[in-house]
Measured scan of single mutants.
Amino acid sequence: IGSLMYASIFGNVSAIIQRLYSGTARYHTQMLRVREFIRFHQIPNPLRQRLEEYFQHAWSYTNGIDMNAVLKGFPECLQADICLHLNRSLLQHCKPFRGATKGCLRALAMKFKTTHAPPGDTLVHAGDLLTALYFISRGSIEILRGDVVVAILGKNDIFGEPLNLYARPGKSNGDVRALTYCDLHKIHRDDLLEVLDMYPEFSDHFWSSLEITFNLRDTNMIPGSPGSTELEGGFSRQRKRKLSFRRRTDKDTEQPGEVSALGPGRAGAGPSSRGRPGGPWGESPSSGPSSPESSEDEGPGRSSSPLRLVPFSSPRPPGEPPGGEPLMEDCEKSSDTCNPLSGAFSGVSNIFSFWGDSRGRQYQELPRCPAPTPSLLNIPLSSPGRRPRGDVESRLDALQRQLNRLETRLSADMATVLQLLQRQMTLVPPAYSAVTTPGPGPTSTSPLLPVSPLPTLTLDSLSQVSQFMACEELPPGAPELPQEGPTRRLSLPGQLGALTSQPLHRHGSDPG
């Protein structure tokens, strides 16, 4: 009997000691992992102490058991019943959930998450997105703005933001810190809205009876308010094209079509300037034949640059190039080494500058006005007194259609001029006259002087055409309008007829 009692007592005591040691061994194993994590990542002392304290409290609170892992091991129907039991206190005593059906309560219970916070733990920081609604079931918390405590909340209090009033989550206007050990039930806004969409009859009752104890939403960050730039940057990543407008005076608003859609830094370009900076079609017209890549860069430059609305530039004389043409100036200075066709295309550029300027006046029909002061630039669209967005969009579309028509007509005119030049060069190729044979009589004449090349004649003739079109064909006081194609086609051969009437002889060394 004594040996039996000794064996039973010894066996029970050893089993008890073994169970104690097993729990202690698990605790030390998990604690060792936490300390190894702290050492590996070199976490500083204040945060390291918070980690160790939280682990110790969580171990004593749950005995080292992962409740979520245990809950996920059950089937979904059983999980709903378990969640309904775990959140029964909240669902029974909170006013917004009263009167809900059994199915609605089960769906809500599945969406709730339980959070346990030790003292000093910050649940929400200032500036964080308010993605959830919090219900306090135990403990107390404090809300701070800077170093000032603005509120202390306790059991059955609710904090967050009214989700039904805002389409997008706002930002917190303060820090939420736990004063004691707290148990909180939180539900994400997407989950709550999903359940309320499934039960629309409960939705009206819920929003009407929901009383948020403390609204954390920062009202200064609401979209459309003066301080909402940061919020707009976070939620409006896919922005449309940006529009900046110059201020319109009362006198300017009476004149229709007073602005032109141009790229940034293009205030001095012609009315047909689009795409790359520098001139019509993204580059100076005089350098068009020598740089074919300008047409390839036109599309990307047009689509990537934001639109700006600026006044037209001052008018340019008909014979003056659009500006920024070092290529043609070098050719004029060193005409001995340049291609003979460069002079002809220089005359073509003069005609283009004249036609572009006159067509700009035809479509816009307003006098040039000086540029406004820099303080009046970049007025935002949302400022008071601005035109409605639809009106601005319609004006932009009208300007775009005008620019497209202008570009089409300029292309047709350019093709006409090039065809005339090619026809003239085919009839009378460039050549130098040879020395004529002296006559049989004693009164022999001296050799004839060489005839100037055709490109120079073409430049003079085209300059005469531009001056003739600019000065004589337009009646005084009438708006400057571009001439039609047949009129220009008839004027060019008439001007060139006198020049080509002389018999030109080919030089023996000319390969053409």
Rank of each mutant, 00 (worst) to 15 (best):
V259M: 11
K242Q: 13
E194S: 06
L381G: 11
G268V: 11
L504H: 05
S286R: 09
L376A: 12
R409F: 05
D175F: 04
F202H: 11
S433T: 11
S444W: 14
K240H: 12
P475E: 09
C471T: 09
Q467W: 03
L327W: 15
Q422M: 11
V149N: 03
R246A: 12
Q400W: 06
Q422S: 08
N350H: 06
D336P: 10
T458R: 11
N378G: 14
S411Y: 05
S334I: 13
D413A: 03
L262Y: 12
E161H: 03
R138H: 06
S466D: 14
Q419L: 04
L499A: 11
P318D: 11
E194Q: 07
P300K: 15
R389G: 13
L366V: 12
N215G: 02
D297Y: 08
D297V: 14
P162Y: 14
F245V: 10
E296W: 09
L420F: 06
C338W: 12
L381W: 07
L496S: 07
V150S: 03
S225M: 12
P315S: 08
E332A: 12
P493L: 04
P226I: 10
P200W: 03
A371S: 07
Q424S: 11
D191A: 03
G139W: 03
R409M: 09
Q495S: 10
G257E: 13
G154Y: 11
K251R: 07
L327N: 05
T426L: 10
D510Y: 08
S349F: 05
A267N: 09
S225T: 12
A151Q: 03
R248G: 10
L133S: 02
R248T: 11
G347K: 04
S304Y: 04
V150E: 03
R247E: 15
R168M: 04
R145A: 08
V428W: 14
L396Y: 08
T436D: 09
S349N: 04
V465G: 10
P321H: 15
A412Y: 05
D297C: 06
P380W: 01
A344C: 03
R506Q: 10
D147S: 07
E473R: 12
V451R: 06
A470S: 10
R359D: 04
S260C: 10
P264S: 10
P380R: 06
R247C: 11
D330F: 11
R387P: 08
P318E: 13
L327E: 07
T229A: 09
L481G: 11
I141H: 01
L192F: 03
P292E: 14
Q464E: 15
R248L: 10
A470K: 04
I222E: 12
P326W: 11
M328P: 08
P317R: 06
T131F: 14
L163E: 03
G227Q: 11
P442M: 13
S208I: 04
V176K: 01
T456A: 08
T408D: 09
T253I: 11
R177A: 03
F202M: 09
N378H: 14
G356C: 04
R409C: 08
E142Y: 03
F345G: 11
S346W: 08
P285F: 13
S313A: 13
G288V: 09
S335T: 06
D157A: 08
A412G: 07
P264L: 10
E296D: 05
G356V: 09
I187E: 03
A344M: 07
L165G: 12
P271N: 12
G270Q: 15
A132N: 10
L462K: 13
V435S: 11
P321Y: 15
S501N: 08
M469K: 06
G477Q: 13
P430A: 10
Y432T: 13
E472G: 12
S286M: 03
A151I: 03
L130F: 01
T373W: 11
P479I: 06
S394D: 04
S411R: 11
K171E: 03
E230L: 09
L457T: 13
S383M: 05
T408Q: 08
I379S: 14
L462Y: 05
Q464K: 04
G323K: 11
D204L: 12
F468K: 11
D336Q: 10
I212Q: 02
L210R: 02
T416M: 05
G497I: 12
F214P: 01
V148N: 11
V465D: 14
Q238R: 11
Y432Q: 14
S291Q: 14
D413P: 03
G174N: 11
P169S: 05
E258P: 11
M414A: 04
G477L: 12
S208Y: 06
T416Y: 01
H205Q: 09
E211Q: 11
L406Y: 04
F235M: 12
L403W: 04
K251A: 13
P455H: 07
L381E: 10
S394I: 13
D204C: 10
V417C: 15
L504M: 15
S305D: 15
S294Y: 15
P322R: 10
E329A: 13
D397P: 07
P442W: 08
L163C: 10
S236Y: 12
R386K: 11
I152Y: 04
P326Q: 08
N220L: 08
G160M: 01
S342F: 12
T436C: 03
E142D: 01
F312C: 06
D330H: 15
E473W: 04
L459Y: 14
S137Q: 08
S286F: 13
D191E: 08
P475A: 13
A132S: 12
L403G: 04
Q402F: 13
L193I: 09
T219K: 09
K251E: 10
T249Y: 10
Q483T: 10
G160L: 03
L396S: 05
M328H: 13
L496T: 11
T445E: 10
P450N: 09
E254G: 08
E480R: 10
L504V: 10
P479V: 11
D510T: 09
E473I: 14
L377C: 07
N339G: 12
V150G: 02
G282W: 06
S260G: 11
R248W: 10
Q400L: 11
N339L: 10
L243R: 08
E329M: 12
D460C: 05
N156W: 07
Q502D: 14
G127S: 03
K171A: 04
D510C: 11
R246M: 14
Q364G: 10
K171I: 11
Q362G: 08
E201F: 02
F202K: 01
P372G: 10
L492N: 13
K171H: 10
R168V: 08
E480Y: 15
I141T: 01
R266F: 13
V435W: 09
Q424H: 07
Q419R: 11
E365Q: 09
P442R: 09
D357Y: 05
F354S: 11
T253Q: 13
S411F: 13
R302Y: 05
Q422V: 06
V428T: 08
T500F: 09
A344F: 04
V435P: 10
Q483E: 15
V348A: 10
D297L: 07
D357L: 11
G233T: 11
I212F: 04
S294E: 11
I351Y: 14
T180L: 02
P285D: 12
E232I: 13
E142R: 03
S452I: 07
P475R: 07
M328W: 03
S287F: 15
A398C: 15
Q402C: 15
E365R: 12
L481I: 08
R189C: 08
